[in-house]
Structure formats: C-alpha cells, structure tokens
Amino acid sequence: NQASVVANQLIPINTALTLVMMRSEVVTPVGIPADDIPRLVSMQVNRAVPLGTTLMPDMVKGYP
C-alpha cells in the first residue's frame, strides 16, 4: 500500500506547507503520494485542512 500525505496539524487556508505540517500514512482513500512531500513544501493549501486529513490534489494550489 502506498503512503499518502496527511496533515500533521490544522493547516489554515492559504498557508504555505512546511515539512512539520505533513506526515506520511497509509490511508483510504489514497491522497497525494508521500513521495511528493518535498515538492509540496512552500505550496499553499486552498482550504483549511484539519489535523489528520489526507491531502488531495485539489487542496493544494499548483499541484501537480
């Protein structure tokens, strides 16, 4: 099973992602692959992302 990117904390709308905000976890449904975490750094979320939420491609501005 492939690990996905999961919010490690509440991420407010328009926040630029940092490594501490994300963790990898095997979840269903599958979200953004954990391998993409380095690419996500400094990209902004377009909505508030609660703790434990799987990051989906449509939540991150400019992804992929």
Rank of each mutant, 00 (worst) to 15 (best):
N1Y: 15
N1P: 15
N1G: 15
N1F: 14
N1Q: 14
N1S: 15
Q2V: 14
Q2W: 12
Q2N: 12
Q2C: 15
A3G: 15
A3F: 10
A3M: 13
A3P: 08
A3E: 14
S4F: 03
V5A: 14
V5Y: 00
V5Q: 01
V5G: 01
V5K: 00
V6T: 13
V6L: 09
A7Y: 01
A7M: 04
A7R: 01
N8M: 07
N8Q: 10
N8W: 04
N8K: 09
N8S: 14
N8T: 15
N8G: 10
Q9V: 08
Q9S: 08
L10I: 13
L10C: 15
L10A: 12
L10M: 09
I11G: 01
I11N: 01
I11M: 04
I11T: 01
P12V: 05
P12Y: 05
I13Y: 08
I13P: 14
I13W: 11
I13L: 13
I13N: 14
N14D: 10
T15C: 05
T15A: 07
A16I: 12
A16M: 12
A16R: 05
A16Q: 10
A16S: 12
L17D: 03
L17K: 00
T18K: 08
T18C: 04
L19W: 10
L19Q: 11
L19P: 08
L19K: 09
L19A: 09
V20Q: 11
V20Y: 08
V20F: 09
V20H: 14
V20C: 09
V20D: 10
M21Y: 06
M21P: 03
M22I: 11
M22L: 14
R23G: 08
R23P: 03
R23K: 11
R23Q: 06
S24H: 15
S24Q: 14
S24F: 04
S24Y: 09
S24N: 12
E25N: 06
E25T: 10
E25R: 04
E25M: 07
E25D: 15
E25W: 06
E25C: 05
E25H: 05
V26I: 15
V26E: 15
V26K: 04
V26Y: 12
V27K: 06
V27W: 02
V27L: 04
T28S: 08
T28P: 02
T28N: 13
T28H: 08
P29S: 04
P29W: 03
P29I: 06
P29T: 06
V30Q: 13
V30D: 15
V30C: 15
G31P: 00
G31N: 01
I32N: 00
I32R: 01
I32L: 05
P33G: 07
P33C: 15
P33S: 14
P33Y: 09
P33F: 14
P33R: 07
A34I: 08
A34T: 08
A34Q: 07
A34M: 06
A34E: 09
D35W: 07
D35M: 14
D36N: 09
D36E: 13
D36C: 13
D36R: 10
D36L: 14
D36A: 14
I37K: 07
I37G: 04
I37S: 04
P38H: 10
P38K: 10
P38S: 10
P38I: 06
P38E: 08
P38F: 09
R39E: 05
R39Y: 12
R39S: 10
L40I: 08
S42E: 06
S42R: 08
M43C: 05
M43W: 07
Q44D: 04
Q44E: 11
Q44C: 06
Q44I: 11
V45A: 05
V45G: 00
V45H: 00
V45N: 02
V45Y: 00
N46H: 13
N46S: 15
N46G: 12
N46C: 13
N46A: 14
N46V: 14
R47L: 10
R47N: 07
R47S: 11
R47V: 14
A48H: 14
A48M: 13
A48Y: 07
A48L: 10
V49Y: 02
V49M: 05
V49G: 02
V49T: 04
P50N: 11
P50L: 15
P50Y: 10
P50C: 15
P50R: 07
P50V: 06
P50A: 14
L51S: 13
L51G: 13
L51M: 12
L51E: 12
G52E: 04
G52T: 02
G52Y: 05
G52K: 04
G52L: 04
G52S: 07
T53G: 11
T53I: 12
T53F: 08
T53E: 11
T53C: 06
T54S: 04
T54W: 02
T54K: 03
T54P: 09
T54H: 02
L55K: 00
L55N: 00
L55F: 09
L55P: 00
M56V: 10
M56G: 05
M56W: 06
M56T: 14
P57A: 08
P57G: 09
P57T: 08
D58P: 07
D58T: 15
M59C: 05
M59L: 05
M59T: 05
V60P: 02
V60M: 06
V60I: 11
V60G: 01
V60N: 00
K61P: 10
K61D: 10
K61Q: 13
K61I: 11
G62P: 05
Y63A: 04
Y63P: 05
Y63K: 04
Y63N: 05
Y63M: 07
P64K: 15
P64H: 14
P64I: 15
